[in-house]
Design a protein around this nucleic acid. Structure first.
Lengths: 342, 342
DNA sequence: AAGGCTTTGAGGTACGTCAATCAGATCGTG
DNA sequence: CACGATCTGATTGACGTACCTCAAAGCCTT
């Protein structure tokens, strides 16, 4: 016979359909004793409620909001487009996703944007933002109001978010260091580390992991202090060429965050030392092209499509009180070389 | 207002519900003229049929069969367990997956197993098998009978399968070569290639890609002919130690297919040259441990959970005539180092 | 225009669940 | 034991679709 239904439970427990329904949906008006009887019938029959029938009956709509920076960066652009692609498909699944774009590098704007979210109108949010106490408090408020919350790409571990969707950035930095060290060996020299900003938690964690492995595994290589380009045009070229002049023995460059386009352009203009090993993060049109030409040796990245799909699945699972497949939601630290580009 | 329903279409087209239903489900008894009227109403209203309601109404059950080798190998074992994990979740989705295990290395058994599948009882199959004309014909028969068919891990490109679920093995071999060359440089010497069998298409393709990149990019490294261990206990140790004696300048070993456990044990017993670089395929308990100890420098793998989930999604999409998200179904060639182990 | 054919309409039941009502049963308490 | 108060049962109507029947209407052909 097929899967047990509410009718079977009613029969097994010796109660009516209405009572089973009240127990299943946590409505009041059922004695503890009767509840137990129903629960044990559910267990013994192995009943699992048919979510699609339930959603059909109750006309359920999942309303999720993605709070994302709208920057000039290629990475957030690809996040946006992955999300839009996913939205198409999810409409069929009764999932309605809205994007709330906020100016980057401005936590105050993020807090304001979160304030505009009416907890009665929204079931869950995914947020990518820098870590500040104000942002954390705004998130906690929404979580307290019953929203499902996941952090995206860059975590806010001290907040009340339900999940973090993204890679372990310390491990990502360690992976970058391992590749850098092995690609360089047995050559020695200095490694330059550049990024647009060290304010974001993900950049910090990558740098931390990178330094740890470089110091322990490749002590003969000298890692220079991080230079920040702060998304200012021209600044990346200036700091990179200054560093190359100051340290003629630079053999590697590790690009921690965004700003790959500027870095690549700067290297093209000022010329690169022979055998220079460049390792960068995030697959974008620029890093892809540079992998193909050999300007970048390896890119460490996370699949943006996977990110958004995982975030949506987690939000949905939270709303329905469902369990998740751990392995499906673990975002992989992908190592991309010229030969395994997707 | 919400999404349009069949009622709205009937109204818009000026026909009855029954007629809309006949058109939607391709039942006979509707004049071409009326069909067109209904179709244009569907288009103008942007109607999309609610699959979950439809499946509920028709009591649909997707019945899929996975035809997998049951070998001693860790990789197929992990495939089995990933599949069993996925089955739990998919039961809630009206998806019923059965595993049909066949003895490995015996195409005849595969054909026999496929013959036991009643096309009336099954909606789709996923199959992992060696490429022979008989297997191909058996697959074509099932496809002709209307089953959805995907090949898993190792493709049968000349068959009528709908999709291949797995990595591009040529690219995987190229990736292995690029890593091997860069990890070795500037050292030169010989690279040993071992596998359990070159009969499977995936092994062949990997070897092909590996050779291409080694010859073109690292001509100073000498790649030895492939040695096959054929899953015979003891044979791996014998051929590896013989090779190491015959070629004292072996600097790298590329393990194309299964047999990693035997390879690692052999190396432990007979001792390994200093600086030896070992690159292997597929993450298993053995390769994971060896990555952690440093015995293996890199593992190239594919996520088995992703494999089975993708296969199920593709089979379902085929059954429903739905479109798919290309990027979600592309299995990534994962490069695993000690630091980015999942 | 009568015959036979195809096409269409109207209506019903079902799928598994949610949600609501109202009447009846049971309970604890004084 | 009678009183509200609290539980429970029986029933009904959604939700959007599938599938079936029966009768009515339309269309040809002769």
């Amino acid at each position: 016979m097929g899967k047990p239904t509410v009718h079977d439970i009613a029969l097994e427990a010796g109660v009516s359909l209405a009572t089973v329904d009240r127990v299943l949906n946590g409505r009041p008006g059922v004695r503890q004793k009767t509840q137990d009887r129903v629960q044990s019938a559910i267990l013994s029959l192995g009943y699992v409620r048919d979510l699609s029938a339930a959603n059909l009956a109750r006309q359920r709509q999942y309303r999720f909001v993605f709070v994302l920076p709208e920057g000039p960066g290629q990475f957030v652009a690809s996040l946006h487009s992955a999300l839009r692609e996913a939205m198409e498909v999810q409409r069929a699944d009764r999932i309605d996703v809205r994007i709330l774009a906020v100016p980057p590098h401005d936590p105050h704007q993020v807090v304001r944007a979160l304030g505009t979210i009416d907890p009665g109108e929204v079931d869950g949010i995914a947020i990518m933002a820098q870590e500040t106490p104000q942002v954390r408090d705004a998130i906690d408020r929404l979580a307290a109001a019953g929203l499902a919350v996941v952090t995206l790409v860059s975590d806010l571990p001290d907040s009340d978010r339900d999940h973090f969707v993204g890679i372990n950035n310390i491990a990502a930095g360690r992976t970058a260091a391992l590749l850098m060290g092995r690609f360089l060996a047995p050559a020695t020299g200095k490694v330059l580390v550049v990024t647009s900003s060290l304010l974001a938690r993900d950049s910090l964690e990558r740098r931390f992991g990178f330094d740890a492995v470089m110091a322990y595994e490749f002590p003969e290589v000298d890692v220079l202090p991080t230079l920040e380009a702060r998304d200012e045009p021209g600044r990346m070229a200036a700091i990179v060429s200054a560093a190359l002049v100051a340290h003629p023995d630079i053999v590697g460059i590790y690009s921690v965050g965004s700003g790959n386009k500027a870095l690549l352009e700067a290297l093209r203009r000022i010329g690169r030392p022979a055998g220079l090993v460049v390792i960068a993060h995030e697959l974008t049109p620029h890093t892809r092209a540079a992998l193909e030409t050999g300007e970048i040796a390896a890119v460490i990245t996370q699949d943006v499509g996977h990110l958004v799909r995982s975030a949506v699945r987690l939000l949905r699972a939270k709303c329905d009180g469902l369990s998740i497949i751990q392995s499906q939601e673990r975002i992989r630290i992908e190592v991309l070389l010229r030969e395994n580009l997707p």
